[in-house]
Amino acid sequence: MDAPLSPVTLPVDDNINPYAFCVDLQGEWFLHKGKMIAYYGQMRFEALTVASVSALVAAHFSSPLYADDWVVATGVGKLVLGDRGFDINSYDLDDGNLTVRAANLLAFETRLELLQSIVPGFLTLLGTGKFLASSNGPVIFAEPPIRVDPEALVGWADCPSPSYHYDGHWMTQNLVGLLRGAIGIVSGEERQFDFTGAGTVLIQSSEKTMADPAALRMMEQQITALSQAEKVHLHRFLGAQLTQ
């Protein structure tokens, strides 16, 4: 057993083990709610909407949908973060852009700017700085062209946003396939994200995703654009899904 850690022996902006990370806080960091496990020093954790959070800092967080789930840590000290025993990785952005699944993003420096991606459930980070992301199992870095299971995708950097690729070819090939498709026998891999161009794609080691309550809220917002008849249709569709 290793000796207990102290503020002196804790790593500086590095992993303590694959599942815990120590941030050397000198100023401010954005933090996902509830991911702090311990800290040394003087720190305050405040919601983004609290008046004492400077408007300059809050302006770097332009996603009202997720604002409730995030806090600002202010102060000086050593901050230890963990996320349900998932693997934690730190990434350095150098005047770049990276889009990451909102449920996987753990913390980031206030130097970085956060934007909400048009892909539901994803957030984009811009600028220069460090951020932390968690994943179920180690992250695999791959280069396009590649197609990824939407559940296994953690994020992507530098390359264009993904497009959908549908793998339903087998359904139209013959009658057996057609019948199978009609009665709902599927491979579970029909819907894929297709990446092209130059960049990096981040994939986690499992298709198990973490719950993201904001994704539901985003869908709710989109429903307001529907007409009355469309809402009735959606209501029936949901009813059919629930009774299954």
Binding site: A142, I146, D167, G177, E189, I203, E207
Partner: peptide, 15 residues
């Protein structure tokens, strides 16, 4: 079924 994480090249998945 459903265990594919990603792939490169031209691959199709059939149940």
């Amino acid at each position: 079924r459903g265990a594919m994480l990603a792939y490169t090249g031209q691959v199709t998945f059939r149940p």
